[in-house]
Computed example of a mutant assay.
Amino acid sequence: MNSNFPKTIYAIQHLAFEDLGSLEDLFYQLGFRVRYFEAGIDDLKQAFEYEGLTIILGGPIGVYETDDYPFLIDEIRYLKQRLEKNLPTIGICLGAQLIAHALGAKVYAGHVKEIGWSGLDIRYVNNNILAPLADTAVLHWHGDTFDLPENATLLASSKIYSNQAFQVGQNILALQFHVEVAEDSLEKWLIGHTCELRKANISISHLREDNNKYAEGLTDKAEIIFKEYLKNIGLV
Rank of each mutant, 00 (worst) to 15 (best):
M1N: 13
N4D: 15
F5D: 06
P6C: 09
K7W: 07
Y10S: 06
A16K: 13
A16T: 15
D19F: 10
L20K: 14
G21T: 14
G21W: 14
F37S: 09
E38F: 13
A39Y: 06
G40Y: 12
D42G: 13
L44Y: 10
L44H: 08
K45H: 15
A47R: 02
F48K: 06
F48D: 02
G52I: 05
L53P: 07
I55A: 01
I55V: 14
I56S: 00
L57G: 01
G59P: 08
P60N: 13
Y64R: 12
Y64P: 09
Y64M: 10
E65I: 13
D74R: 10
E75P: 11
I76E: 06
Q81E: 14
Q81R: 06
T89I: 07
T89C: 08
L94N: 01
A96S: 11
L98H: 01
I99N: 03
L103H: 02
A105H: 00
A105I: 06
A105F: 07
A105R: 03
K106E: 13
V107I: 09
K113I: 01
L120N: 03
R123G: 04
N128D: 04
P132V: 08
P132G: 04
P132H: 09
L133A: 06
A134H: 07
A134M: 04
A134T: 03
V138R: 03
G143I: 06
G143S: 12
D144G: 11
L148A: 11
L154H: 00
L155T: 00
S157R: 10
S157F: 05
I160C: 02
N163A: 01
Q164A: 05
Q164P: 05
G169V: 02
L173V: 03
L173N: 01
L175V: 00
Q176F: 05
F177K: 07
H178M: 02
E180M: 06
V181Q: 09
V181H: 04
D184Y: 12
S185H: 15
L186Q: 12
W189D: 05
W189A: 04
C195R: 13
C195D: 14
E196V: 11
E196M: 06
A200Q: 15
A200W: 11
A200V: 09
N201F: 05
N201I: 03
N211L: 10
N211D: 10
Y214G: 04
E216L: 12
T219G: 04
E223N: 09
E223P: 04
K227R: 12
N232S: 12
N232Q: 12
N232H: 04
I233T: 03
